[in-house]
């Protein structure tokens, strides 16, 4: 397993943000993690890269148990560039004072690679994510949203990671750019990279994920192959998610069914 999370608990003060979450992503597999605002999906992702300390459970990244890691050991592991995180908002995750190239090469420079070789790699990566080489000397503020997003992807891929966590990578893109980005992620998967694809929208994950995990109020309520989740979900929340995602031919649940599911979820309430 490229990434394995088992029984993970995260507390923020008194809030129990994540309750016993288990999830695994194999090499060359794409797992969609679906959850709405406050469901704990970002918390899970941040715990995997060590930005949040779990209060219980285990996290294994690329075969290495990182659960007890702190400071120096985490840094050493991260420096190997095996796991990368593409943040949701590309504008905020790029330093406004660094050029595109400086941002892309940063992980390599942190590894201590020579500047010249790193710059060479940056050009390769730019080509790979279809970013015009002329943009390398620009500042992020001068780029369009889609271009910035490709910059953050290039930065994440420059260390040839085995696991990439993508936080809402397509929700801010318009239709044409979105299709291109999804095509790109499919190629990435084909090359053996494990992808954890986080989104609030089942629709944007359904087309690319092999398996889907559904987070609801800090708990993973259902995991399964994408097809099963969409067509034969068990948990009412998953069914509501499927029924709520806007579809073209409105084959999804109708209004009355959604109403029922909402009422049902009300009576179940959240996990205690």
């Amino acid at each position: 397993m490229s990434l394995e999370v088992s029984n993970l608990d995260v507390h923020y003060g008194r809030t129990h943000a994540l309750r016993g979450a288990s999830l695994s992503v194999a090499a060359g597999e794409t797992v969609g993690l679906i959850g709405e605002t406050g469901s704990g999906k970002s918390t899970l992702a941040r715990a995997v890269v060590g930005l949040v300390r779990p209060s219980a459970g285990r996290v294994t990244v690329a075969g290495e148990d990182v659960t007890g890691y702190r400071g120096r050991r985490w840094r050493a592991l991260r420096r190997r560039g095996l796991v990368q995180y593409v943040f949701q908002d590309p504008l905020r995750s790029l330093d406004p004072d660094l050029t595109v190239e400086e941002s892309i090469v940063e992980p390599l420079l942190i590894q201590g690679r020579p500047r010249r070789a790193a710059a060479e790699r940056a050009r390769e990566l730019a080509a790979r994510v279809h970013l015009d080489e002329a943009l390398l000397s620009r500042l992020p503020g001068e780029l369009s949203g889609g271009q910035r997003q490709r910059v953050t992807v290039a930065r994440a891929l420059i260390t040839e990671p085995r696991v990439v966590i993508l936080d809402e990578p397509v929700s801010a893109l318009d239709a044409a750019t979105r299709v291109r980005a999804l095509e790109f992620f499919k190629q990435l998967r084909a090359s053996g990279t494990a992808l954890l694809f986080i989104s609030h929208d089942l629709g944007s994950v359904a087309g690319i994920a092999d398996r889907i995990a559904v987070l609801y109020q800090g708990e993973i309520v259902e995991t399964g192959p994408a097809r099963t989740i969409v067509n034969a979900a068990e948990h009412p929340y998953t069914r509501l998610l499927v029924g709520s995602a806007p579809t073209l031919r409105s084959a999804a649940a109708d209004r009355a069914e959604r109403e029922e599911l909402r009422a049902l979820l009300q009576t179940i309430g959240g996990p205690a």
């Binding site: 979105r178 944007s204 073209l248």
Partner: peptide, 11 residues
Amino acid sequence: EHEQYGLDRFT
């Protein structure tokens, strides 16, 4: 976009 990547693919 919906047919290839969205829920419509399954529905």
